[in-house]
Amino acid sequence: MNKIVLLILVVSAFSITSVHAQNKDSLSFDERNKYIYYQVAEETKVKADTLYERALHFLKNAFENDRLKLSKEDKDKAILTGKGGFMVTKKALVSMQDDAKITFNMVIEVKDGKYRYWFTDFAAIPYRRDRYANFSPVDGKKIPLEQGLRKLGQKTLDDYLEQTLINCRNISGVLKTYMQKPSGTPKNDGIKRSVTTKEW
């Protein structure tokens, strides 16, 4: 019994430590008073041109178009811009239902040996039930998250910000993977290669 209690305490402590470690990055306000998720990362041995190509490859291929797509490229300034969106859900009867879509812009800027990126211009498009029992966007509604307290209420805004942060972290993780490897990385085509069992 004592061992079980000890194990639970160790696991709990580990979980709390992990959460704190993950929370080092967070949403902040930029100079325009807009929410921003801003990160700088290093790839010390990689030239700017290469990082640019890898970032371009990321924006073109990493996600479905409705989640993140390339919207502008400027090679002279070494800046790429993408547009994206993700669904935020709320608890329904026994499952989750679409509550809104959060749209955002993502900017990636590269230099020799490092790059920075940020997500900003977050706006919520509310969803509601339509005549076909689907949840679809409310016509004409787009609420910048900076106005969320007034238009969505504290609880909803907090929920949206939390899900926004999680989404930014997820995309960041994928970006870092793309920035670490050559941009021509072929997609997994799902074809199983033959395996030899004679040597091992």
Binding site: L93, V94, S95, F135
Partner: peptide, 10 residues
């Protein structure tokens, strides 16, 4: 298994 099943109503 039920992650994509949505049950809603009014």
């Amino acid at each position: 298994q039920d992650s994509t099943l949505s049950i809603t109503g009014s």
